[in-house]
Design a protein around this nucleic acid. Structure first.
Length: 564
RNA sequence: CGGAAAAUGGCUCAAUUUGGUAGAGCACUACAUUUGGGAUGUAGGGGUUGCAGGUUCAAAUCCUGUUUUUCCGACCA
């Protein structure tokens, strides 16, 4: 690309509607432009990065034996009705009607359609395994799009679906994708972790996420300082705390705690640590109310709660509902005399002489013990904390933030059952197909790379996905020798497949340097005065210093850097 | 969906409190001088101040409504 004759622009100042580092840099460098909330235009430079990522994904998917196809994004809602997910997705699905008022949707994910496609082939166990994928747009009406390309409403996703006759086959297909994903993110140069995760709306029984490690991440990853344990905080299990409390059980005592509704206020007022208070939160679980008790310094994990109760929908009860159930203002809920189902965290059984709400405005009970009330279910319903014991090895857990760039699921027979995808086995018996699904967000990967690779001057693309590998900067457009050498190098590099930018704009050299830094081109060649000695200057984006290289050697030198 | 903030040339902002000809920097055009890390000077072009009402002799400014965007939370593959 010769810049003097191209659609190329950069911005000098930060844009005010992009807070994230990656969002801001991508907009400033002219790669993307916000079109509306959570929807972006991809400019020529940004598209090249996307395509480079897509190509790596495509290569690794093809290597794994998967086959590419493409699906419509505009679908009749029946498709999701059939699997029962129309309700599950709810308002996060974009819905519209055609001219005959028939309901359509923009596809948020494509399990159903792939099942339909697979059914064209699958009759017998001999027809499997296979794996189909596409790279295309997905539409999700997110509650709050944010952080540039990290949470958007229209995005490009690679989604793959494997079809196997049995669990054994699914394990193998899943493992292939696991390896393919590792290859993809390794080639892109992303710093990532693979963590166990919740299966969410997808269903199924195993899910692992590929998480890019960055402070702007939306997910909390729980890692162990001694073993390989890695899980999303949503599902990370708690080890039973060893309280070792030798104190005697005391009789419970009603205490007046005027307008001290929060845990902190109660602790200050009664002069007890937060770990000696048990909070009771009222949840609406499907259509039933349910009180959940955890220690005052812990938080209820709704994903775990949902699983424990085998519920579909878990949300905090409204203030009005809480007041109705506890007959007190919010902040004074407790288990004693409470008329709804009570779930207690496993740790509560070991605690002694703790404080709970009295279901009476402005009152709490001191010295409550587990024998003072009845409960329905005991389980692990709280979030793990940093420093907690590792459930696998007993080491200490620590947290990192991550951006979910890929997610692989063992779906099992969930969709083949709801959509009736069966095959005949060797005994001529009908069985359901075992499926896996495998998603990878392309723009999100792009943003994650920027989050991990930037400095005060701009983006630093890894060579594997850089929009152009080399930028040739001409110091003076008025110098014929410089022009000639630069154009010659430009032609030579492009002719051997090394995509190169020629900055031949009529700008000061400082502007060119700054722009090439901002857009993150990995290798910069400066053609200046030293052409008279047949030398050009080579500088890597990752390094501060440059070096002079003779014209005879420069192409080989660049090849070496790129192939390394 | 709850809370908070914002909307003024392509970009970043000022003028709003106290109503009185919309202004700066960057970017753009022309010319001159410059030219190895975002040049300088001179002269220009570009805005019915998000939208719709209202108050007023007069509205970017006050009032009402509305839309959009951002942030925090809730929610979410």
């Amino acid at each position: 690309m010769k810049l003097s004759n191209s659609f190329f622009y950069t911005l000098r100042e930060n844009v005010k509607d992009e807070e994230s580092v990656s969002g801001n840099l991508l907009v400033k460098s002219g790669m993307i432009k916000k079109s509306s909330n959570g929807i972006y235009m991809y400019m020529p430079l940004g598209l090249k990065v996307l395509q480079n990522i897509e190509n790596i994904v495509r290569e690794e998917m093809n290597n794994s034996g998967a086959q590419e196809l493409t699906m419509p994004q505009l679908l009749p809602q029946d498709v999701y009705e059939e699997s029962g997910r129309l309700k599950n997705f709810g308002p996060s699905m974009f819905k519209l009607n055609d001219r005959y008022n028939r309901p359509y949707a923009l596809g948020p994910t494509h399990e159903e359609l792939f099942v339909h496609a697979a059914s064209m082939k699958i009759k017998s166990y001999k027809d499997m395994p296979f794996n189909l994928y596409q790279i295309g747009n997905k539409y999700r009406d997110e509650v709050r799009p944010r952080l540039g390309l990290i949470r958007v409403r229209e995005f490009i996703m690679k989604d793959a679906y494997s079809f196997d006759a049995d669990l054994d086959g699914l394990d193998k297909s899943y493992q292939k994708m696991y390896v393919a994903y590792k290859n993809i993110f390794d080639r892109i140069g992303l710093n990532y972790k693979i963590v166990k995760a919740d299966t969410g709306v997808m269903g199924g029984f195993l899910s692992e996420e590929f998480q890019a490690i960055t402070d702007t991440g939306e997910d909390i990853l729980v890692l162990c300082d001694t073993c390989e344990y890695a899980a999303n905080q949503e599902i990370s299990e708690c080890v039973l705390n060893d309280y070792n409390d030798e104190s005697d059980l005391l009789p419970k005592e009603l205490v007046y705690t005027p307008s001290h509704g929060t845990i902190k206020e109660i602790c200050d007022f009664l002069n007890v640590p937060m770990s000696k208070v048990v909070k009771t939160l009222i949840y609406k679980v499907d259509d039933e109310f349910c009180a959940c008790m955890v220690a005052g310094d812990k938080d209820v994990n709704e994903v775990k709660l949902q699983k424990l109760l085998k519920a579909v929908n878990v949300e905090l009860a409204s203030m009005e509902d809480v007041e109705k159930i506890t007959s007190a203002k919010v902040g004074f809920a407790g288990p004693i005399g409470l008329k709804c189902k009570i779930v207690v965290d496993q740790d509560i059984l070991k605690m002694k002489n703790f404080v709970v709400g009295a279901n009476k405005t402005d009152y709490h009970y001191k010295n409550t013990n587990i024998s003072d009330f009845t409960y329905d279910i005991v389980g692990d319903i709280k979030f793990v904390c940093e420093g907690d014991t590792c459930p696998k090895c007993g080491g200490h857990l620590y947290f990192k933030k991550g951006i979910e760039v890929g997610n692989i699921f063992k779906l099992g027979t969930k969709y083949s059952e709801s959509l009736n995808l069966q095959y005949s086995d060797s005994n001529n018996k009908l069985n359901y197909v075992y499926m896996g699904c495998y998603g990878l967000g392309i723009p999100r990967t792009m943003a994650s790379v920027v989050e991990q690779n930037n400095d005060e001057n701009g983006i630093i693309w890894p060579i594997s996905i850089a929009p152009y590998k080399v930028a040739i900067v001409i110091v003076s457009n008025k110098d014929d020798k410089q022009l000639m050498v630069a154009n010659d190098l430009y032609d030579k590099l492009n002719s051997i497949g090394i995509e190169t930018i020629l900055d031949d704009r009529d700008e000061r050299v400082g502007v060119k340097f700054n722009d090439m830094d901002l857009i993150g081109i990995p290798i910069r060649l400066t053609v200046g005065k030293k052409v008279n000695e047949d030398m050009v200057e080579l500088k890597l984006r990752t390094e501060k210093e440059s070096k002079d290289v003779s014209l005879d050697l420069i192409v080989d030198e660049i090849k070496k850097i790129i192939n390394n």
